[in-house]
Design a binder for these strands. Structure first.
Length: 817
RNA sequence: GCGAAAGUGGCGGAAUCGGUAGACGCGCCAGCCUUAGGAGCUGGUGGCCACCCGGCCGUGGGGGUUCGAGUCCCCCCUUUCGCACCA
């Protein structure tokens, strides 16, 4: 072996050998101990692999290699998320075509990924832009369509004026397009929706048991946004055939409902508005609908509430009072029933609205301690929204004095018994709009016939191949570029044979990524999307590691698709990822990395200078993997030095026999324990620190190490620095790859703890000495030894011992006074 | 506004069923070595005082519980993330 560690030479050698021996190509049908280690496949950008990709993949690869070393058959696939607006916009900008751009990007990514030494099975790559893949994406659309889970409907949708396409709710961040940050506007268009809302409760319920990062679960819970409350019907004066249904989470405040408000889109608007108010209402509604989404959604302080009286009246079902019905754009048609009961005393928005238009305010909930002698006509300065056991109802007839939390249920039950309302649940999540008026995606497999309407493409006709369209630039029309290809557009209706037109929208790229992990084990199967036996063997995914930015996008959508396919009998499980861990974000010198700042870390440069192993390990050393870290130029030398020392230690004259001293042996076992536990829980930074610490002890005073001291260390660095570990493993006389067989070292728990322990000696809680005693020493022994210490005696100052606190093997505190 | 997480040396970060704060690494300082280099090795490195033993202070700020608090409780400040007129 070379005298000095030359990372690039070592890495070149082993990457070639892994390829030749097919080390990472798993036996997909025969593996005895399958472990599916998944990472979020990248979008292959023209800029090449980003350090964020490397960070994500390294952490996942370490976990996979660790499992491999423990004897699992690890399947670690990779693919390319190459459809979508991102690629398409880039191609437009560069005046090229995605069909030319993408293959070269993928080739570049492949080169870079191979150079990093990830243990990918390169025989099972998924490229979602290949017809053999998107054929099955279209097939999934057809399955959902057949099951009634895909439907075309006209709805207000988010329109990005720059990308010139509609977007799903999840793709709108703060009212802006997640891709280009343009302000999103609202359009009414015919779009395809997947009915993810049908699964809202299951998506929520399963979060109870799936093993995911808590923060990711929380994001999903918030996005699903379950609210419990009641639907309540209000009669409309003069329209006995119609009732106004509202949803409220606060049925306890029903006696305080002094007006109602409809969303501008509410279907009853026309009919109930009185002639006297008609022109005012119509102009208000026209105005509201013309306003774009962002402006309209500006809340509270940013924009004053506006609204107009419709002149119509409703009856409060509990007070029998006539209350006025207003229209206001702060009420949203998409949520609940597009109408609310206005309870100004106990809702901040209603309070603001009532104050503005001088509507009556009636207090019906007050703190319990103000119940006696409460003045029903007291003025309110702001809405009072508390509603626990400590608040009680007033002005509420027979419910006076009932705690608010309890009244929610009682009033709901009472309304239900009279057929005027019922317990109800609402969700914030919307159906998933999958249509995109763009080019670079799988065509939605539907044909529109004048006679038969929307007809699904027969399965045997899949794939509907995406044609090469020269001018794929999107426009304002709301019609996708595929409409420009007459050969694609004009077809026969599969049902009646008459002239028909293809659907020209393509599907959202999140549909591609919603099922890619199901395809990996079956990439060589062209007759089915996923082979049943392999699916049973490998899925659900054992470990999924990725960024949290996909919590409500990819992760939500793929859970939904998995559930739907499960219900349709295609999958034996309903949750795709048994275990998911988010990784943190990596910043540089305390600042976010961005092209405009010019501080982006280019992985290639570091890999060339220090090697992939050092770069990988440094990234993992920056901070806790699940929290991210701060990339600092200089720090990487610390890892380079560590590996130099590992190399030197293994390269020297190695002695035989067990570890030379008890101290080294103890430290070795403690280190194996710590590294094993830390890797299992993704605490890579402390695992690396522990290995450094161990090496510092094992090679203290420049002694020659023994094989028994070094070999376990070589295995422990293998997940981080696979090439280096292979080279050293070979040097130590092993024929096979270190990743063949089960080489992860075991530790003896008895040896992992020291025989002698240092105990802190405190006097009145302040550290005064440290003594060394045998592990498990009794309180009396420790006390005797502690009292003999000079420092202890001095601080006791001859005073009486009042109390002794003893924590075995840790601390003794002598309280005097 | 609501929800969540986090504030520790010059820097990245260790340590939370309450028990020696600052592991590991970067940087810095001193010394050694040397085909004098941005290499390697050894030692030191929270602050203040003493600078020999040692002492006091110290985990965003202020209170509290405790023999003992970075860790638990209350109030406040700051930062980051998510949601945001969701009734």
């Amino acid at each position: 072996m070379a005298e000095r560690y030359d990372p690039v030479a070592v890495e070149t050698k082993w990457q070639k050998r892994w390829d030749e021996t097919r080390l990472n190509n798993v036996d997909i049908d025969g593996a005895a101990n399958p472990f599916y280690n998944l990472m979020m496949y990248p979008y292959p950008s023209a800029e090449g692999l980003h350090v964020g990709n490397v960070y994500a993949f390294t952490g996942a690869d370490i976990h996979g290699r660790f499992k491999q070393l423990q004897g699992n058959d690890v399947f670690e696939p990779i693919g390319f998320d190459a459809f979508g607006i991102h690629s398409e916009n880039f191609a437009l900008e560069r005046r090229t075509h995605p069909m030319e751009l993408i293959p070269s990007n993928i080739a570049n990514f492949t080169r870079q990924l191979k150079r990093m030494g990830f243990m990918y099975d390169w025989d099972r790559v998924v490229d979602v832009t290949q017809p053999e893949y998107y054929k099955w994406t279209q097939w999934i659309f057809l399955q959902l369509y057949k099951a009634g889970l895909a439907e075309r409907r006209q709805a207000p949708v988010n329109w990005c004026p720059s990308c010139k396409t509609v977007l799903a709710n999840e793709q709108v961040i703060d009212g802006r397009c997640e891709r280009c940050s343009s302000e999103v506007t609202q359009r009414f268009l015919d779009q395809w929706f997947f009915k993810i809302t049908d699964f809202a409760q299951r998506l929520l319920d399963n979060l109870e048991w799936i093993d995911w990062s808590d923060s990711t679960k929380r994001l999903q819970r918030n996005w699903i946004g379950r609210s419990d409350g009641a639907d309540i019907d209000f009669e409309i004066v003069g329209h006995s055939d119609k009732k106004l249904r509202v949803f409220t989470t606060r049925p306890d405040t029903l006696f305080g409902a002094t007006f109602m408000v409809l969303a501008p889109e509410h279907p009853y608007m026309q009919e109930i508005t009185t002639d006297e108010h008609r022109s005012e209402v119509e102009s208000y509604v026209r105005n509201a609908l013309a306003m774009d989404l962002v402006e309209r959604r500006k809340a509270g302080e940013e924009r004053q509430k506006t609204g107009v009286d419709t002149g119509a009246k409703a009856i409060n079902p509990v007070t029998d009072e006539e209350i006025s019905i207003w229209v206001a754009d702060y009420v949203l048609m998409e949520y609940g029933h597009g109408a609310i009961m206005g309870v100004p005393a106990h809702d901040e928005r209603d309070f603001e609205f009532a104050t503005q238009y001088d509507l009556p305010i009636r207090i019906v909930v007050i703190p319990a301690d103000q119940y006696e002698g409460f003045d029903p006509d007291a003025d309110l300065e702001a809405a009072f929204t508390e509603h626990t056991e400590d608040e009680v109802l007033v002005n509420s007839g027979k419910f006076d004095g009932v705690p608010a939390a309890q009244a929610i249920k009682e009033i709901t039950d009472w309304l239900a018994s009279q057929g005027r309302g019922e317990h109800a649940v609402n969700y914030r999540i919307h159906d998933w709009c999958i249509s995109r008026q763009r080019y670079w995606g799988p065509p939605i497999p539907v044909i529109h016939c004048e006679k038969d309407g929307a007809v699904p493409v027969p399965e045997e006709d899949l794939p509907v191949v995406l044609p090469h369209v020269e001018n794929f630039r999107p426009d304002e029309s709301g019609i996708g570029p595929l409409a420009r290809d007459p050969e694609f557009l004009n077809v026969e209706c599969p049902k009646c044979g008459g002239p028909a037109k293809r659907e020209t929208d393509v599907s959202d790229t999140f549909l591609d990524s919603g099922w890619y992990f199901m395809r990996y084990p079956s990439t060589d199967r062209h007759d089915v999307p996923f082979d049943a036996n392999r699916t049973k063997k490998w899925l659900p995914v054992d470990m999924y590691i990725g960024g949290e930015e996909h919590a409500v996008l990819h992760l939500m959508y793929s859970r939904f698709l998995t559930m739907a396919l499960h219900d349709l009998g295609h999958l034996p499980f309903e949750e795709p990822y048994e275990k998911f861990r988010k990784h943190g974000l990596i910043i540089r010198e305390g600042a976010k990395m961005s092209k405009s700042r010019g501080n982006v870390v280019i992985p290639d440069e570091y890999v060339e200078q220090y090697g992939a192993d050092t770069f990988r390990t440094y990234l993992m050393f920056l901070g806790p993997y699940e929290e991210g870290g701060d990339f600092r130029e200089q720090g990487i030398t610390g890892i380079a030095r560590f590996f130099d020392r590992v190399w030197d230690a293994a390269n020297g004259e190695l002695g035989d026999g067990p570890p030379e001293t008890e101290e080294i042996e103890q430290k070795l076992h403690a280190t194996i324990k710590k590294v094993t536990e830390d890797i299992a829980s993704l605490q890579y930074n402390t695992a690396i620190a522990a290995m450094m610490e161990y090496l510092n002890i094992a090679r203290a005073s420049g002694r020659a190490a023994r094989r028994s001291e070094i070999e376990p260390l070589v295995v422990m660095i293998a997940p981080f620095a696979p090439h280096l570990a292979e080279e050293l493993w070979q040097h130590l006389g092993h024929g096979d790859s270190i990743f063949t067989g089960t080489n992860w070292p075991a530790y003896d728990p008895k040896l992992a703890v020291a025989d002698e322990v240092d105990i802190a000696v405190q006097v009145n809680g302040r550290l005064r000495a440290t003594i060394s005693v045998p592990r498990g020493a009794s309180e009396d022994e420790v006390k005797e030894k502690a009292l003999a210490e000079d420092g202890v005696q001095r601080h006791m100052d001859g005073k009486q011992i009042r109390k002794v606190i003893f924590v075995p093997d840790r601390l003794i505190n002598i309280v005097v006074g």
